[in-house]
Design a protein around this nucleic acid. Sequence first.
DNA 1: GATGATTTTGTAAACGATTACTTTCCTTGA
DNA 2: TCAAGGAAAGTAATCGTTTACAAAATCATC
Lengths: 329, 329
Amino acid sequence: MTSIKDVAKAAGVSTATVSRVLANKPPIRPETRERVMAAIAQLNYRPNLVARSLRAQKSAKIGLVVSDIRNPFFTAIGRAVEDAAYEQGYSVLMCNTDENPEKEMLYLNLLHDENVSGIIFSPTHQFSLQAGDFHFDIPTVIIDRLVHNKEADMVLLDNVSAAYELTEHLLANGYRKIAGLFGDASATGQERHQGFVNALRDHGLTPFSAEFVSPRIRSGFSAATALLQNADKPDAIFTSNSMLTAGVFQAAREFKIRIPDEFALVGFDVTEWGEFVDPPITVIAQPTEEIGRTATELLFQRLSNPNRSARTMVLKGNLLKRGSSTAKR
Amino acid sequence: MTSIKDVAKAAGVSTATVSRVLANKPPIRPETRERVMAAIAQLNYRPNLVARSLRAQKSAKIGLVVSDIRNPFFTAIGRAVEDAAYEQGYSVLMCNTDENPEKEMLYLNLLHDENVSGIIFSPTHQFSLQAGDFHFDIPTVIIDRLVHNKEADMVLLDNVSAAYELTEHLLANGYRKIAGLFGDASATGQERHQGFVNALRDHGLTPFSAEFVSPRIRSGFSAATALLQNADKPDAIFTSNSMLTAGVFQAAREFKIRIPDEFALVGFDVTEWGEFVDPPITVIAQPTEEIGRTATELLFQRLSNPNRSARTMVLKGNLLKRGSSTAKR
DNA sequence: GATGATTTTGTAAACGATTACTTTCCTTGA
DNA sequence: TCAAGGAAAGTAATCGTTTACAAAATCATC
């Protein structure tokens, strides 16, 4: 392992000089600088980031803590964060919590111990409940899920409006008996429920039904099965996340119930399958790319200005009207 | 920041003793040990991993270098690697190369500079070509793509057999005019082409056509469009990766060509959309979970025994026969 | 050419852990 | 009671950087 000492020796200067050349910190005589550069090139020297991080008490790394990277929503965000970080010369440590508060705490500690400069974090429901008491000693941007904490920046979707708009779309297309399925693992489901109920209320209606279930395909499948096998069926199903949408879709196929002829289906988040199936599914598209990028930028802003007061950015979803919810006949 | 010195002072011992307690390294008098533990708990002390890593010249981190984490194949592998690493107390640094050799080199260097203990790595095509000359100074496990290098362990799919089996399935179901579309970005496409050709040859046939194109949906779409609008059409299309499969599927839908009535479609890799569309797509399922886990285990084996000679594990794909390739009528 | 100001470089102390090597403290046996 | 030997704890060097501070070199001015 060649270290800065070797370079210093080879160039006939002190380690301090080498360090200054590396950091491009004047004053350095051009001549010396060249001598050092030559030695670096010749020895193929690369600075040791660990040592640098120890000395500087920080590192060019940020942590990304999400529930599961296999969720396409988080995959997309992860990618956007990585790209934005890369542009600034930072790298990303990805952590999956599986909605498990213990794993979450473990990773938060790990990131701390690794001297990461900042954290982008989608907290579990349990964390959100106590977030007010939590002290973030590392700059942190919360994404996707609202928490009440003065210290952290946030990037969120306007879930209430998005759900409202999605519900209104169903109403505009003539659907009236609308059932709602909402995830129970985060506050997101509750906000979307709120928008759903608001829209119906503003049109003088009440939900055909509204259930909170665990955000998994299986739960969506069972709930839909129950709804659709009843004599009194809904004419539309509103789902608050793509797992539930998938479950409902599978139930429809299993029981050969045609969409949208027998019932309309709408949900959240762009997925590949949702575009490829026939009919494709109407959804609220979250601007994942923008969320990831914005969160990362917010983080870098805070890194360069630690005293700036916390900001919350609320982004709008984008309604993609597709075949699963065409006008009722 | 509380350091080991603070703990030592609080417990009335030297830093060496604290370190020994932490590492659980006898000899330590039970009484002292307890005093130290108490101080640790009271000060809420957490060892600084950066300092530890600098001193030990290694870290409990491994790097994962893949082309794009948004590719479901790599997402699944990433998740499996993370889980396996987590069990050993390791964390994972994920890097996307976008098939770009420069980015790849940059990340390989970064991982080196971060003192990662090992690397799991899916190399670009360009890297593979020169891999023989490359010296891995960090234990490395290559996945997905064959390279010729004595130093690295490898976990691969038996692509030739898998493609052979997939082609035979088409033949068994009565298809004869089979076109092949293969990715040109890695050796994987070539191996699958090999299996494809072998199977046809062993049945006295030749490909209806065989093209190497860039592994993107768009390429699949154009290639399929050209194939299907010709007067002399294939009765089946074999694709070597899921991007191409998607492109072909979209082309079929765009031009209202029915699968499998007008042509059968088969490919590689499990995707959500491939299961959800009607008919679902016949594919070779790669054991992603197993690939990730095996690679990680191989890495840990090497970490504990650096002299062990390099191993290559070849895993079998699993043919999932589905609606897109039912017997020809 | 001496003086002081300015530019350039070097010295050495951190950062927070680990660990070879010493030192101190007990036991034990004669 | 003392010596020897082992157990327990301490001292200080080390990992590879960065950076106050000190020192040296350079330059301009009179």
